[in-house]
Design a protein around this nucleic acid. Structure first.
Lengths: 193, 193, 193, 193
DNA sequence: CATGAATGAGACTTCATTCAT
DNA sequence: AATGAATGAAGTCTCATTCAT
């Protein structure tokens, strides 16, 4: 029970919702506008999603899916942790810059105190990227890197990418190249020369 | 135009607003609840702050002031960049853990996408911490560290601290010590051994 | 965009609003009460009318339409200015007495000092009665009456009718017959015998 | 118990209230603005007048007193009804034009559904002008004019003057001379040549 | 007696959700 | 199944009045 038409309509709604939520945030977005943008009746929104929150969560998931699918396809040739780090930073920054809507949705997803909103991104990330977590374990085993909790490193990496891209977009004080290079350099060898 | 009594009452309101905003966020918080919590009439809120947004911005500023004043007092004995980095991380993490309300306000301010909200924290940070920015310049001059844009580093540092404290609080997967050590280690020498 | 049902509901609202505005005036009337009286949700008011002011203006227009339609149908057999004058006074006074709500709305509209409110009655009056203005011109041409600015005369007539009906209603010092006769007599030949 | 200072202050308030009520009406005027304009504290308003309504009524009375005092002094030389009529129209129109605040207060006094507001003007009028009502009786006795209810004529006269001055002020379609002449002519001999 | 800060009822309006068509 | 008109709870803000200083 999910005809082709229904799937199409669901995507239609998520696409429209992405745009509105990205621009207005969870609270600013109106169901009215989303329905209009999706070219469906307001009631239809409620047939596909329980309520506004549910639509919001699904929108985040929808965008996260798209971005991690892209990132996955760009890092899967990485040969070691070093390589992976560089490819991940490059791919993520690039994707965010090419897909401002995805980016805004991700940035805003932290805003709301909806715990599900935070969780859903992590869930999708794990779905697509957990296979790469092994690179870490291997590098630690091999003694190439310090013995870190890899989740901490990943959180740091994520958060740094997002906030630097945000700063780059709001006030173009730093170039994309500068951001990427700094990220790579810090995470590899820190500030020390 | 700001008698002692008025100052006291303003603080009273900001204290109450902090708690409510921290718990509910800008949109979830109701002026009614804030008034009740502050033990003043709803109209009084509007005598002291133009509207809800204005109260929100002032609440953020109020909390930022408190936190940077603390941090300043704990890092001002730092002798060099290395020292400063360690002291800053220690002081900031400690303050956030001891002051969950401040922390929640700051976290939310980062994500509200309210331009004033972001700006106000930066303004206060600069007010208290800009004197330390020299440590960076000196260390670069002396060749002790790589030639980085210090603003990028600071943004990374800030954002990492906030998100790790956040993770620590939501699911106690990492100890405080672990967080601090990882932060210090990564920023000093990266993941490489 | 105005189905039969919608037209009906709009009339329903205007009918209820007339009653409330007549009794309470623009400022005294509450949207809540109007909604309740119209047996619609408060939100529905805002679907049909932009805001309270807009509803007020439309209520005045609605009542003006009704009254001038009636008056028009009672004066259209008039053969000359004299006849018209008598018929107009008779019809207008009668209508106001039979429709106290219309009357109160019109009285208030004159005094609201809301420019739109005054304008709307004049607009409707012109729509229904402008064809009779010719009677004036003809009578002047024929030398039957003095050379007056007919707008001044009409303003005087209007205003006298309204205030005499008002006085009649607040303190029944004068009978309806007395009012009508005096109006007719004064406007035809003045106080002089 | 009404010292000179208190009388002065009361007048001060009424003067300021006149201006504000004339501009904003009963509902638009704020006690705050009136207090500021009167250069007294808001609380003082309540020492001199029970509440806003009471202040409003007193303001109307204050202005009515001034205007009828003026009119009285300009019509008291009238030798007969004809003379009185002309002098009254001339004086009233002139006073209204020279005192826009009084005029606006009087116009607005009908707006509110405060019955006291209407009554107070009539009370003051009677106080100053009732002595002239005899002119009417005499003229009727002498057979110079028709047998009318003089109150009806006075109401008509009042209301016509006010609305024509209003029209003159809002859109200068008719000159003052034209208004006065038409009023005099209609009330004396009607529209008939 | 004067002040103006504080109060809080109550006004308008919005918008997520429901439901008749 | 889809629509969008209707709903009404809930939100922000205003302002007449009170009252401590």
């Amino acid at each position: 029970m999910a005809t082709v038409l229904q799937k199409k309509r669901k995507k239609q709604i998520l696409e429209a919702a992405s745009e509105i939520f990205a621009k207005e945030g969870l609270f600013g977005a109106e169901q009215d506008s989303i329905a209009k943008a999706a070219e469906v009746g307001k009631g239809t929104l409620y047939r596909y999603f329980e309520n506004k929150n549910d639509l919001y969560i699904n929108t985040i998931e929808f965008q996260a899916e798209k971005s991690f699918r892209y990132i996955d396809s760009h890092i899967n040739k990485s040969e070691n942790l070093d390589d992976l780090l560089i490819n991940f930073i490059e791919a993520t920054v690039d994707y965010f810059l090419k897909n401002p809507i995805t980016f805004d949705i991700i940035v805003r997803s932290n805003n709301t105190m909806l715990f599900e909103a935070v969780g859903v991104v992590q869930k999708v990330r794990d779905k697509y990227l957990s296979k790469y977590y092994l690179y870490f374990d291997k590098a630690i085993e091999e003694g190439a890197v310090k013995t870190f909790n890899k989740n901490i490193i990943l959180t740091m990496l994520d958060t740094c990418i997002v906030s630097l891209v945000y700063e780059h977009k709001s006030n173009s004080k730093y170039s994309v190249r500068e951001i990427k290079d700094t990220l790579i350099s810090i995470f590899r060898t820190g500030i020390k020369k």
